[in-house]
Design a protein around this nucleic acid. Structure first.
Length: 194
DNA sequence: TGGTAGATTGGC
DNA sequence: CCAATCTACCAG
C-alpha cells in the first residue's frame, strides 16, 4: 500500500493539464512545517477557458501564483475567513491550479486530516504567508510521495460555485479517493468515517 | 471610490 | 437558513 519512504516530488508531473495534475495529486502528501496530510479530494481549475476560475479574467494581485509554474502554492482568503490552498499546475504563464479540498492523516507523526478547503488550511497551518511558495523546492512546505497509489478515483461536479459560472460549475473536475482502511476519511466534525 | 459577491464554515 | 468577516474586483 504505502512504501513508507517519503520522497519529494519532481516538477515534471505538475506541468500538465489541471485535470491530469489533479488526479496525480491524489494520494500525495502535503507537508507543511512538520504537519502531513494525504491529499484525498481535489478540484481542478483552468484559466481563461474556465469561467469558474480565479484566472478567468486574467492576472491580478490575488491570483498571480496561478500563473506560476506548476508546483507553486496558491493561497487565497475566502469569505474573509478561510484560507484555501491550491497547487498551481502547467507551465509558467499558463494559469491553472488544483484546490485541495480534503486530506487524510499522513503516515508519520504530524499526520492530520480534514474535509473542506478551509479546514485543510487550518489543520496544516497554511495561510497567505505561504502563497507563492514552491512545493518542489521549498524546505518546509513541499509535496511528497510515499508510493501510495489510490485504488479508485471518483469524480463529480465542482462545488460551491455560483450560477454565474454557468455550465462550468457542473464540469466533473472534482476528484476524490474513497475512504478505506488505508485512507481514513474524516467527517466535517473530525470523526473517522473509515 | 463605493458596492457587492465570493472555489466556506459553523451555529441556530 | 443565515451570519461572520474581508477584500478583490468592477461599476460609476
Amino acid at each position: 500500500v504505502s512504501g513508507g519512504l517519503l520522497r519529494r516530488v519532481g516538477r515534471e508531473p505538475l506541468l500538465g493539464e489541471p485535470l491530469a495534475v489533479a488526479e496525480w495529486l491524489l494520494g500525495k502528501l502535503l507537508v507543511v512545517e512538520g504537519r502531513i496530510g494525504r491529499i484525498t479530494e481535489v478540484e481542478a481549475y483552468g484559466g481563461r477557458d474556465d469561467p469558474a476560475s480565479h484566472a478567468y479574467r486574467g492576472e491580478s494581485a490575488r491570483n498571480r501564483t496561478m500563473f506560476a509554474a506548476g508546483g507553486h502554492l496558491y493561497v487565497y482568503l475566502a469569505y474573509g475567513l478561510h484560507h484555501c490552498a491550491n497547487v498551481a499546475c502547467g507551465p509558467s504563464g499558463e494559469p491553472a491550479a488544483v484546490l485541495v479540498r480534503s486530506v487524510a492523516p499522513g503516515p508519520l507523526p504530524g499526520g492530520v486530516g480534514a474535509v473542506g478547503p478551509g479546514r485543510v488550511c487550518r489543520v496544516l497551518g497554511i495561510d497567505r504567508g505561504h502563497d507563492g511558495r514552491d512545493l518542489v523546492e521549498d524546505a518546509d512546505v513541499h509535496l511528497a510521495d510515499d508510493g501510495f497509489e489510490p485504488a479508485t478515483v471518483l469524480s463529480g461536479p465542482r462545488v460551491g460555485l455560483s450560477p454565474r459560472s454557468g455550465a462550468a460549475a457542473h464540469w466533473p473536475w472534482r476528484l476524490w479517493v474513497p475512504a478505506s482502511p488505508d485512507v481514513p476519511r474524516l467527517t466535517a466534525r473530525g470523526s473517522v468515517l473509515q
